[in-house]
Design a protein around this nucleic acid. Structure first.
Lengths: 172, 172
DNA sequence: TGAAATGTAACAGTTTTGGTTACTTTTAGC
DNA sequence: GCTAAAAGTAACCAAAACTGTTACATTTCA
């Protein structure tokens, strides 16, 4: 089974970021994601430890964003979840053979593994939660128009994008 | 269970690259890696399709390197194996809801996913199979000396590294 | 012709992961 | 205080993915 913790965490955070006014609970989020509230709580609990979200227990409680999306990078989120952004290493049998080569090869591969993880985090640090939220809301806006029967060409000609929203071009 | 195909493939290729004179078979490689010959054959078969190794059937057959390690990048190897170098995406239930937001969020996440995969391949393209082989043989040389009771400081003072081998410093 | 090797299909065993239930704890409002 | 609503967490289950293994066909050399 794939490990979708990081992807799901991103989804939760974009959801909170795109709709900060609404009241969110693990149940309401789980419903939108088609999963179980406990899955959401597990992730939110980890994100809350790092202050990225704030979870309040009890009646009227729920989940809300705890940090500025413009100051939160996707790399930080991976760090928080301790999510591996590289390939999986194999292992070797413990063996008292004479040759050091197999262990040395594995060791070199693991060094490369760490290097790729670091590079991936650097890459993800270039994107903020705000950037990702922007990308999502633009896509949602486009989907909305297409759902209303508008063609992609019409959309391109009739709208411009501003702050993640589609603004009608009335300047022509 | 982790997907160790890429890591194992790298190990096989470094093994072949570090010891080009020896005769290698799926059985001999599997023995060194502590796995089953079929596992090796499956990987070698994929690598052979791309010309990276050459596998000869029949008596006296075996596996040998089919390309120049200096011209083979770790990114190419990932490509050949179609190995995913990014995070796993979650999925959404098919639902005819009104809101386009959940699907739009997922779509934005998947775009980010593809971007990270591309960046990872670029990163791995900076390293050749020769580089990785060099790193492994150096480590093996060091392990050999340590096994002979030499301290790391002694090693640093008494040897220099050249073409992936430890050369005694007799220039002092 | 026989032995040695790869190619491949089929299946089993293990591990990992998300889903689920159940229960505790916290909190707000009446 | 009582009740309802919410998160926190432990424990277990089911499903998926992957490697390991067996078995057999095919190829090749001597």
């Amino acid at each position: 089974m794939a490990n979708t913790r990081y992807s799901t965490a991103l989804h939760i955070l974009v959801l909170l970021s795109a709709n900060r006014e609404a009241h969110h609970t693990s149940a309401s989020i789980a419903e939108q994601l088609g999963t179980n509230p406990v899955v959401i709580r597990r992730l939110v609990s980890d994100l809350a430890k790092a202050g990225l979200v704030s979870a309040r227990r009890g009646a009227g409680g729920g989940v809300s964003l705890g940090a500025d999306p413009a100051e939160t990078s996707l790399g930080q989120i991976a760090d928080i979840l301790e999510y591996d952004l590289t390939f999986d290493a194999h292992d070797l049998p413990v063996r008292e053979g004479r040759s050091h080569l197999p262990g040395a090869i594995l060791s070199a591969i693991e060094a490369q593994r760490r290097e790729l993880h670091t590079a991936s985090v650097v890459e993800l640090d270039r994107v903020t939660l705000q950037d990702l939220t922007h990308a999502a809301t633009v896509r949602a806006g486009l989907a909305e128009l297409v759902g209303q029967g508008m063609s992609n060409a019409d959309i391109r000609n009739g709208y411009r994008i501003e702050n993640g929203r589609l603004i009608p071009r009335d300047d022509r």
